[in-house]
Design a protein around this nucleic acid. Structure first.
Length: 256
DNA sequence: ATGGCTTCATAGTGAAGA
């Protein structure tokens, strides 16, 4: 089973990139973030023509998440239960016998902003929900844009970023709290090249200079992690014309 | 570099992203 995540920064603008990437990589499930479309505008027909089913939770202008899958999604969940939130940041579905949870974690803007407090509260609610969800679904994968670089090696210039949003200690503690539920950062299960990132700023020629962060992740539960055979970041879509600022992350599972 | 692109919603600029 091949599962992947990609913050597309507008599915409307990036649909051709997504269709090309699906054709080339044939994932069994692809989680999307920042679709920035209301559900009535979701390009379901184009994706179905490409052989994919989809569940989605969108809104105008901001946020928006979706799960594309080759097989039928079951037990679809929108949002975090008992955490009222207008922002469409979570969708979950069972694909095959794997619980796929797609998240777009709040950015936080800056550590002294209200949005940062919202981010930390949101992450606490996510953690509490997943603790229960893992009991119901031991085979669980948490994919998405976490807006957290877990370690300094995930940051191109740790000194410049020290204490900043995306790398601050409370955010990293929230990431480690997810790991403490038995969720494993699939990328770090394998040897990886130094300076591996999943996001690069549009400005400053950041991609060409590899000034990036690794903030998009695939976490696998205790039951899934031993069956993971590979995890990689695909930089190719970031080189296309009018790219998303994020690039896909993909994991392979050899499930018994 | 003091936010230097890109998106969306707008019909001039402004908000938000990370």
């Amino acid at each position: 089973m091949r599962i992947a995540t990609w913050n597309v920064n507008s599915l409307k603008v990036r649909l051709s990139h997504v269709l090309d990437w699906l054709a080339a990589n044939q994932p069994d499930a692809l989680c999307l973030q920042e679709t920035k479309q209301q559900d009535s505008d979701f390009p379901l027909a184009e994706l179905q023509q490409a052989g994919y089913q989809a569940v989605f939770s969108g809104q105008k202008t901001y946020n928006g998440v979706a799960i594309l899958s080759k097989s039928a999604p079951a037990a679809v969940q929108h949002g975090i239960p008992d955490f009222p939130d207008e922002q469409k940041r979570v969708i979950a579905a069972t694909i095959g016998d794997v619980r796929i949870v797609c998240v777009y974690v709040p950015n936080g803007q800056s550590v002294d902003s209200d949005k940062y407090q919202y981010k930390l509260q949101w992450l606490a609610a996510l953690q509490a929900w997943l603790k229960a969800e893992l009991v119901k679904h031991p085979r669980l994968a948490l994919l998405g844009d976490y807006n957290i670089a877990p370690e300094d090696r995930d940051v191109y210039d740790p000194q410049a970023w020290a204490g900043n949003v995306l790398v601050s200690e409370p955010e990293r503690a929230a990431f480690h709290a997810l790991e403490q539920l038995g969720l494993h950062d699939s990328f770090r299960l394998f040897e990886q090249a130094d300076k591996s990132y999943s996001w690069w700023d549009y400005r400053m020629m950041a991609f060409r200079r590899n000034m990036g962060l690794r903030i998009d992740h695939i976490l696998l539960s205790d039951a899934l992690a031993p069956h993971c055979t590979a995890c990689s970041i695909d930089r190719a879509p970031r080189k296309l014309e009018r790219p998303s600022d994020h690039t896909p992350v993909m994991a392979e599972l050899a499930l018994p």
